[in-house]
Amino acid sequence: MSSAAPGGVREQGRSEYGVALFLGALGILVIVQALLLPESRIARGPVGPATIPIVVGGLLVVVACFLAVDVFRGGRGEPEGGEDVELTGSSDWRTVLMLAAAFVANALLIEPLGWPFSGAILFWGSAFALGSRHYVRDAVIALVLSFGSWYLFAFGLDVILPVGILKGIL
């Protein structure tokens, strides 16, 4: 069933080694970090604060090796399907990058601009990235959602989200 993998079998095969590499590197990082921990005076017995990280890191390294062997023997991870997923083409990186940009914009702007605007930018930008071209309608929906959620959190849940430039107005 892996024959229908996106991007062609061979191409995915190579990038699957990347997953093994990532797991292995992460495992080594976890082990090194654990070994760098200072000696604990409180912990008793053979299991100190470093033991479990070493075991988990070891697990990652071992799994990385097995995964590499599996990929070498032709094993392929099966991309996840879903209601709106079509796995025939290759990944649409443009959309993903635009979504990430909208997401980061919100993270950077939420405190200076306030959630009502940064959230609206996130929604509008994401809708744009996903192919919506109803600019005005999208903006209206975005603002209704972000202001609505601000008021819902403020009055319903007693959580005050950042007001930013609307300070004193909201």
Binding site: P6, P79, E80, G82, D84, V85, E86, L87, G89, S91, D92, W93, T95, V96, L99, A100, A129, L130, G131
Partner: peptide, 9 residues
């Protein structure tokens, strides 16, 4: 993100 990369058009 995953769905966006493979959105059924």
């Amino acid at each position: 993100l995953w769905t966006a990369a493979h959105l059924r058009r």
